[in-house]
Structure formats: C-alpha cells, structure tokens
Amino acid sequence: MSTSDRIFEVRNLDVSFELNRGASRVVRDVDMDIYREETLGIVGESGSGKSMLASSLLNAVVEPGICSGEVTYYPRNGEPVSVLELSEAELKRFRWEQVAMVFQGAMSSFNPVMRVRTHFRETLQDHNRDIPAGMDRARSLLESVYLDPDRVLSAYPHELSGGMKQRALIALSLILEPEVLVMDEPTAALDLLMQRSIVSLLDELQAEHDLTIIFITHDLPLLTKIADRLTVMYAFGLIESGTVDEILYNSSHPYTRALLAATPDLDVPVDEMHAIEGSKPDPVDRISGCSYHPRCPMADMHCENNDPPMEQISSTHRAACFYHEEAAEAIPLRGDGNNPKQKGAVHE
C-alpha cells in the first residue's frame, strides 16, 4: 500500500505506568501504519497490550499511564494531526468526530439510568450538532444495524439484549460520522451466532460509510472473517503483520505459528492440539533479547541477547524473528483441512 493511503502512522509508541513494584511497560516500541478503508485485525493473548494500543490511538490512556512516541492521524481533508499533542478540547472533538471507539461490554458503555435516546442527544449536543437532524440520523443508523428505532431509543439499556446493546453502541459511535472505528473486543460477551451477525454487520457498515476499522480481539478465527490485514502482538509489542493469507498460511514468527496451532477446533483430535508452553512476561520485568525467547523452541543465545527488528518478508508481510525463514519447518501447523480459514472463518 502507498504511504498516501495511510490514515494512521504510529512510531516509537510506548505506554507505561509507575507502580509500587516498578515501571510497567504495557506498549513497547510500536511502529505501524494503518490504511484508509481497511479492516486491520490486532490479535494476541490477554494482557499482550492490545487494548492499550487502541487507547493510544485516541490518546485515551487513563492516568497515571504515560503515552510517548508519535501517533499521526491523516484526515481525508486537512493537515496531519499529532494526536498525542492535542489539547483536551481538541481531543474531545477528535475522539467522536474523527475516530470513535466501541469498547468491550456494551452494558458498561451506557449509563443505566438514561434512555438510549438521551445518549444520542447528549453526544450531539456536546459537539454542537443540530439535534433534530442528528436524531434523524440516529434513527437511520439504528435501522442500518437492524434495530427498531422506536423501541431502542425509548428503552433503558437493561431492557435490551446483549446483541441489541452492542449494535446500538455501534450506531452511537457513528452518529458524528467518524472516519475510523476502533473496536476493542466488541463481541467478547456475545454468543457465536451474534458474533457472526456483528461481523457481517461491520462489513456492511464499512462499505456504506467508507470506514477504516481497527478490530482488536484474542479470537483469531473471528478476525479472519473480517480483516484485510492482521497484526499479532506479544509482550506489549508487535511481532508479525501481514495479509490474512500470509498470517494463516505463511506465518513467519514462532509465536504466531504456536498461536495458530493452539486455536481450538472441534474437528481436531485433542492430542493434536498444542498449548503454548510457559507464561507471558510480566509488564514490570525488563525484557532482554527477544521477548518470546523463554517460550520459543527455536531460541538460542543470539535470541536471548538481542531484540530482533521487524524484517520485511514481502511488501505486505513483516516479522520480528531472526529465524523467520526456518519457522515453517521448525513449527509445522495442523493440516490444511484444520486451518481456521477453511473452517468458514473468512470471507465467503
């Protein structure tokens, strides 16, 4: 992709917290580009730094967290925006009007004592938008996510099912017509059928509204159904990125391959499932060398003492491993028939 297509450019991004037991780095040296109108999937184990990375894109890391580095947003029209340098007033506009975020757990995102209508009205009012015109748009958005506007707008959050709340939250996130939608584990509390419904819905909304979607989850098969590209996080940093096919079929980092091998599959015998041995690092610990080396079957002294850079494998594929060329042979995946892509987890 051309640099002219970038909508986000992230360089040397770090997020840290000062704790009683020491400084905790929860995002580490992240460099990445996000492109206009793509769906980028960010995947990794719980605690790998995915949510903090998402919050950093909006400069929304909560205190006492410290976010450093560069996050540059390129609007469709206008000058580039240095997100980490925005004032509070500028951030308020940016977070809804340019980039909106859908958090995990819709119930906690709605005020339980306010009707859904009030959430839409207050958002419009806070951004000095025309209320009648905005509420007309709210009704249209609710219809586009297959909800009855009359029922939903007059309801309190607890009167809606989990799937209805999540779809209403997506509609609310689009009320000010942002260019980017950041979704942090948006389907985690939903059943499988509702997860698939939300994924199909996002496909439709992206095409209709020319959205860039950043979808964050630990559910790799779910991501392969919606994403154009995948980025894998481990130990608070990026370790591999590429197209869906590159990650599923030609992954070059031992952790990515181990993650694929550990993906649950009801059609695979239990003795063919392989959990990732060892434990992930503590964010307080100083990581020496490759962050994955204590768990990696390919690691040697070079890995223990040196941190591998992201190497370009193809125009769209990068991996941070000294031995990325040998990874496929050293860590074989399950047979092609057991690949999550061939289990209906990708575009049909």
Rank of each mutant, 00 (worst) to 15 (best):
Q195A: 07
S68E: 14
A275E: 15
Y292D: 00
E37N: 14
G289F: 01
S46Y: 10
Y35I: 10
A345Y: 12
A133I: 11
T217S: 10
S24K: 03
T263G: 04
Q312V: 13
M233T: 01
R76M: 14
V346T: 15
D307I: 08
S87A: 09
Y292A: 00
D271N: 15
P294M: 08
A168Y: 05
M114F: 14
A60V: 11
T212V: 10
A138R: 03
L266M: 15
L259H: 01
L160E: 02
M1A: 10
L205H: 01
A106P: 00
L91K: 10
V99H: 01
I42F: 05
A330L: 11
A60M: 13
Q104S: 12
A207D: 15
H119L: 05
L91F: 08
T243R: 07
E88K: 14
A261T: 09
F322H: 07
M52N: 10
K165M: 14
F120A: 02
I170G: 00
E177L: 08
D5R: 12
H209S: 08
N306W: 08
Y255N: 00
I175Y: 01
E246M: 07
I239K: 01
R129H: 11
M164T: 05
Y292H: 01
M135A: 04
S16Q: 14
V102Y: 02
R36L: 11
R76Q: 14
G163M: 04
Q125C: 09
P309I: 06
E88Q: 15
S161V: 12
M301H: 14
D148V: 06
E79Q: 13
M32N: 12
T72E: 10
A261L: 11
G69M: 04
S314N: 03
Y234C: 05
A258M: 13
S2K: 07
P64V: 02
I34Y: 02
P186L: 06
E329H: 13
V152G: 00
H347F: 12
R257E: 03
L220M: 09
V83I: 04
D336T: 11
A262Q: 06
S56I: 02
R295K: 08
A189F: 06
G105Y: 05
S154C: 09
L238V: 15
I198N: 00
S173L: 06
N77H: 15
P149M: 04
E122N: 09
G237Q: 11
P264L: 12
S197N: 14
R129S: 10
V113H: 06
S291R: 00
A328F: 05
H209K: 14
T256V: 05
M32T: 14
K165S: 08
R295A: 06
N250G: 10
S154T: 13
G49R: 02
F94N: 09
S154P: 06
L176I: 10
Y73G: 03
G237M: 09
P283K: 02
A100S: 15
E45C: 04
E240C: 11
P75I: 07
H127T: 07
S82I: 05
A319W: 00
I287A: 02
Y323C: 07
I287R: 01
A262H: 05
G335Y: 13
P294N: 08
I213R: 00
S252E: 09
G337K: 11
D245E: 15
K343V: 06
E70L: 09
Y323Q: 11
C303H: 04
A133L: 13
L193H: 13
P294V: 06
L259I: 03
E45M: 06
Q312Y: 04
